[in-house]
Design a protein around this nucleic acid. Structure first.
Lengths: 328, 328
DNA sequence: TTGTAGGCGTTATCAG
DNA sequence: CTGATAACGCCTACAA
């Protein structure tokens, strides 16, 4: 059912139908009514593809994310999606995997779809490859990165100060008498290395001289469980563990309990994200709230500002905050 | 940058450019090469909107879901999205809220965008409103419902037998000597009422005559915590609780522990979804695996079959399975 | 092998 | 108030 079909049956031209569809003025009430009746009758709805072509605007935005199942990101996608839908946009979402080298390819596809804006969620978009893809395929499309940044004219960044947040975590552990700390990180991301830096900085600030105890693992309960057992075996003096994400803290906490440590007296530990895992896990996990929902909210706002040509902050920082629970 | 711009600079017509862009045969190698160089030079990528218009196909599919943050659904969205992207589609995802009356409106939008297929994730799409919206706005577009079904020619359904699954849970509890059971449900969905039926059926099968103990709460840790305390106060004889989702089991389990019950000896409990909560929570939760990922996988396959005009099963059922852990 | 012409469903401009 | 007409960017017969 096109505007022409309606026009023919109403005995008018397509332009007149277009006018009433778009509620433009200048149509005689009688004609208008006649047309509206037909629109109803046929359940007409304008073809957005055609509309997008002539209007040079399809009101679509693209969201790229490593993996929506990672609780770390789920909230972000949700927030961004809601914000845009409220404004009449719709969102194309791609889960692109965390290790993939195809980030550029997805950016190309978004370019080809002519999305009007892009949100990249996660610090792992802060790479040379992404930078090149953006300047190739989306040179004029506003792009905002949640927890990352790239030096391009059309890229905006909203970041959390995870680095200093983690060093605050170290302070808290020290204040409670835990001084033999270890850090457990998951696969490499820029965010992960900032966290590690924060850990080292915290130790330095506390006057610790010996080399820091650092372990890596996959981002899974099992990985954290195993690595924690290993850690405690190789460094039995450890009395505090900083995990780079809540999920690891949950898995690691389980290992500590299974090994018979009393929490938090003998060993204290902390997570990052302040996610639901902190409440589901027993004991409830002290966590660094890195403000992911707020970050995403800000990202959506920034992008909207850019799209509606208001003036936009290129880069901004939100402050994280420690939420103490039962593991410290 | 359009094919006309390229054509002009190459000294050929737009159709020739179109041919090389689409790798169609019948272009002299020399011309082809010349054009390809220009395509590279300008980073040309065909406008999908225009292409979609003329081809009458935009390779977009729509996914509707109550709330992507609900772990219950996250996996499903992920699976469906991955499956379609692999086939060159892209997905428009809408979080429409669980109580909202706007389901029809979102379906209208998908129709207006002329998506080629739709996946509805969650039994809460099994309503009259959705049925009407589909027959109005998507009368010929294939739609598949994950864990639901509607009697329309273009609607397909993939369901889990949660009802009998729950009654199996009841059997297991009885087998372990827990005979004073209670059921804790969250907000109303068709799935929720099937689960409740399963619970009642299980009791009946076990020869229980007295009216079942049933509580309702919001789908949250706190809700489950409070309602469990209330339940145990009002029915102190209870020695087994079937929660309708893992999240509730996690919250309720916490309440039971805080009240000093030993798990599973004094009180056993179970969840549904076999989600990560079962492993993060302590003790690890026995759960009904309702095969959500498989369901979503099947849904994607069905839709793909429909799109590619293979013959398609209208409605199918997957069998759930109990995964025993530490709470039974 | 290449170009021309028509059309996909809209919107917008400009006459009438 | 209404109707031609020309875009929008691309694809595809058909003709050359």
């Amino acid at each position: 059912m096109t505007i022409y079909d309606i026009a023919k049956e109403a005995g008018v031209s397509a332009s007149t139908v277009s006018r009433v569809v778009n509620k433009k003025p200048g149509v005689r009430p009688a004609t208008k009514e006649r047309i509206e009746l037909l629109l109803q009758k046929y359940n007409y709805s304008p073809n957005e593809t055609a509309r997008g072509l002539v209007m040079q605007s399809n009101r679509m935005i693209g969201i790229l994310i490593a993996d929506i199942r990672n609780i770390h990101y789920t909230d972000g996608v949700y927030t961004v999606e809601r914000e845009f839908v409220r404004r009449g946009y719709c969102c194309i979402i791609f889960n692109i995997g965390s290790e993939t080298e195809e980030k550029g390819e997805y950016i190309r596809v978004l370019g080809q779809r002519r999305v009007e804006g892009v949100v990249l969620i996660g610090s792992n978009f802060q790479t040379k490859e992404v930078e090149e893809a953006i300047s190739q395929y989306l040179p004029k499309t506003p792009v905002v990165i949640v927890n990352g940044y790239l030096e391009l004219p059309n890229v905006y960044g909203v970041l959390a100060d995870e680095r200093s947040g983690i060093s605050n975590l170290v302070d808290i552990l020290f204040a409670k008498g835990h001084t033999n700390l270890a850090f457990v990180n998951s696969y490499y991301t820029p965010s992960g290395s900032y966290k590690l830096e924060g850990f080292k900085e915290g130790l330095r600030r506390q006057g610790v001289e010996k080399p820091p105890v650092i372990y890596d693992t996959t981002a899974s309960l099992e990985g954290a469980y195993e690595v924690t057992k290993l850690l405690m075996k190789e460094h039995p003096e450890t009395d505090g563990i900083v995990y780079s994400i809540d999920l690891l803290a949950a898995g690691g906490g389980r290992a500590l309990m299974d090994m018979g440590y009393s929490i938090p007296d003998q060993v204290a530990y902390t997570g990052v994200d302040n996610s639901i895992y902190t409440e589901v896990s027993t004991p409830k996990i002290t966590s660094l709230d890195n403000k992911l929902p707020e970050l995403s909210q800000m990202a959506a706002r920034l992008l909207l500002d850019a799209l509606e040509e208001r003036k936009v902050t290129k880069k901004m920082l939100l402050f994280s905050a420690v939420v103490e629970r039962e593991t410290t």
